[in-house]
Design a protein around this nucleic acid. Structure first.
Lengths: 129, 129
DNA sequence: CTATCATATGAATTATTGTTCATATGTATT
DNA sequence: AATACATATGAACAATAATTCATATGATAG
């Protein structure tokens, strides 16, 4: 079957198929597709935002804007269990968003990066329009 | 049982329990807790980032940085089905991140806000360190 | 070495979410 | 009215992830 719509210039293209609906403007489609950042970078950006996309982690980050804190104090601020906080700190650690230092038994966490504050400021502004 | 640790000043407090581990520094905990933005605002921020936290939506947004586009062209750029794109556009629409205009049968989407670009710029910078 | 305290982590459970498939809505053309 | 096309949407399924519970690790004090 395969309804063929290409009336002219059939030799060009590469592999612009795969979508059941035809694109209305192949030139723009191609131009925009080429201007898109690397697949990997886009994936990383999404991963970063995914880490920000949980209210527990948002609250942890906002708490750390105020001051470095140990795990049990973060748990105290958020009124959540130590375990839950620790799991989320691990996520933040893996994303390189927090750093930590050990002092005896307790571990103090703080934010790793200035960009975090900027990103959050913009987000707050966006929400408050 | 309930091991009581409060040695002094038992009259203060409100309801700082609920965590099995005691906080090491109740004063700081209380101060930081009071400085945290409203629960609702924090929730909204997390919701906003959640929307950004999917690579399909990130790619749609980045495509729209280049130019307003119709649904089938976005599908063409991302090489995905019209249905998948339409579902994600609905999410972006509900988050007030995109706006649209109808022209005959086709619907053109574009970004609703300048903050989006700023937030993404910061995110890219953060990732590239 | 043992007990204790702060933190980390594995497993299980529950909830959320992205994509597909099928179909509906809405607009224009004949 | 009937057809064709662009977009939207509901249901189902698969994958991901947040919290709890139980327990492990690591450090200090006795």
């Amino acid at each position: 079957m395969a309804e063929n719509k290409n009336t002219a210039a059939d030799t060009v293209d590469e592999e612009l198929k795969a979508t059941e609906t035809e694109t209305s403007n192949p030139d723009i489609v191609k131009a925009v597709a080429e201007k898109l950042p690397d697949e990997e970078l886009l994936y990383d950006v999404a991963e970063l935002f995914k880490v920000f996309g949980d209210s527990t982690r948002v609250r942890i980050i906002c708490a750390l804007f105020e001051s470095e804190m140990c795990v049990c104090d973060i748990a105290g601020v958020l009124n959540m269990t130590q375990s839950a906080i620790s799991h989320q700190l691990r996520v933040l650690k893996q994303a390189r968003l927090v750093k930590y230092r050990r002092e005896g038994k307790t571990v103090f966490y703080s934010l790793a990066d200035k960009h975090i504050q900027t990103i959050f400021d913009q987000a707050f502004e966006h929400i408050m329009e």
